[in-house]
Design a binder for these strands. Structure first.
Lengths: 241, 241
DNA sequence: TCAAAAGTGTTCCTTCTACACCCATGA
DNA sequence: TCATGGGTGTAGAAGGAACACTTTTGA
């Protein structure tokens, strides 16, 4: 009986979302180095084995910090991926040997979702190359990273559903209602008329109009707004129905 | 660097919910045997280490099958618990040694939520004692099982929110609208007037009225209804707002 | 006859939806 | 002046909330 239970290595992988100026969702990918493969095939999700005295949440925070230089990022654990064959590709095995100097027989990973304002400066202490990649242009990735990204997309939609406020983690501090609308459209199944969206959003007391408007647009300039997290929390607001 | 990454043992633990005749949520607990402790302190969540060639979902299905005799139970992975100190209690270490014959240095667990009609016969192939326990009467449990149960309660509420149909996994095949109402009340923050609830529920085409009514009640007998999963799926129904 | 819950109907009110209308700006 | 999007107003539809009223049953 004893031998059928094995110990495994445990890692965390992070899917960091950003929202770009062309209204596309992007995720952060890093480079992995493996001589056998051409450069364009070496992207992967940022991740790491967990340390011996480290909880998975801490490991994910560590990975995010090493990735972006940001100390406390919003994050959410969403699923453990543990297919016994998820790391059976020979390239992947080779890469793990080189990266961790262990003979790894099995590895499971705990996947995290995180959000980042896409203009925030990325200052990685660990990775040489950290790039935003539009979610519909993600190349073929090692391990089950493509599947992880797919499921993270379902998860982020669900997250917005029950905590609308996290949407503002993806927007600049000053944003127009159109920006918020585009982002909401990218993250929700529900189709709302933009006029009604505008009316509704601007009626919320946690959406603060600023005295600043867009510049250089060839139509009436839109007002900038900011999100007031304190007011939001106080009012115990629900999501948009 | 190599030595700071350690391998760990990975288990699954299952929180199985049931809804009893006093309108209380219950969960299934099993007995663990450890000479040093009095009998009433030996309850725990059903669980197991994962096998060497087993995905976590499969491990959870296996645990549920060994627990209840039911082959395919509705289940949902909800969180990986990995506090480095979660298995540092000496009783727990002793028990693991005895149960698994391994010298386990660290164990993380993937927690699952499952639902069971409380009248279903429990036919365990692994555990001598399997008991329903009201969720507000759960004793102090080993490892972090109390915390797992607490978080599973939050999770089941969320689950109902985005897939209302799973509520019927907890009800008998024939149920009255009052039963559904009591269960919904136990699982939702929203307070609905029972009359309006009645009207709304009976308007759904996936709630089928039967030609059978309650017997022996000292008031007007309620009609029994059943849930039609096919109609529900076809209509792509949303939850109760 | 009373109590208790089933089940239906009605009214009020809030929110959603669609769309009309005017405003501001660059080309 | 035109196109484009910002922003407001309004009318109708849909759905939720509160509650009155009738029905059924056992005690």
């Amino acid at each position: 009986m004893g031998s059928t239970f094995i110990h495994t290595y445990v890692s965390v992988d992070c899917v960091v979302f950003g929202f770009d100026h062309e209204n596309r969702l992007n995720i952060l990918l890093v480079q992995r180095f493996l001589d056998a493969l051409p450069a364009e095939k070496q992207k992967k999700l940022p991740g790491s084995l967990i340390l011996s005295d480290e909880d998975v949440d801490d490991a994910a925070q560590r990975v995010l910090h090493e990735l972006t230089g940001i100390k406390k990022m919003v994050l959410k654990q969403f699923k453990c991926f543990a297919d016994p064959l998820r790391a059976s590709n020979t390239d992947d095995i080779q890469w793990m040997d080189k990266e961790y100097k262990h003979n790894i027989d099995r590895i499971i990973t705990v996947a995290y979702l995180s959000l980042c304002k896409i203009d925030h400066k990325i200052n990685s202490s660990k990775y040489d190359t950290v790039d935003w990649c539009p979610i519909d242009k993600v190349p073929s990735l090692p391990f089950d990273h493509n599947q992880i990204i797919e499921e993270s997309f379902v998860e982020i939609k669900r997250w917005i559903e029950y905590d609308f406020s996290i949407i503002f983690e993806l927007l600049p501090k000053k944003f127009t209602i159109r920006q918020l609308y585009q982002l909401y459209n990218a993250l929700s199944e529900k189709q709302i008329d933009i006029k009604n969206f505008h009316k509704k959003i601007s009626s919320f007391n946690y959406i603060i109009p600023l005295n600043e408007i867009e510049k250089g647009v060839s139509h009436r300039a839109a007002r900038y707004y900011k999100f007031d997290a304190k007011v939001y929390k106080k009012n115990n607001n629900k999501l948009i129905k």
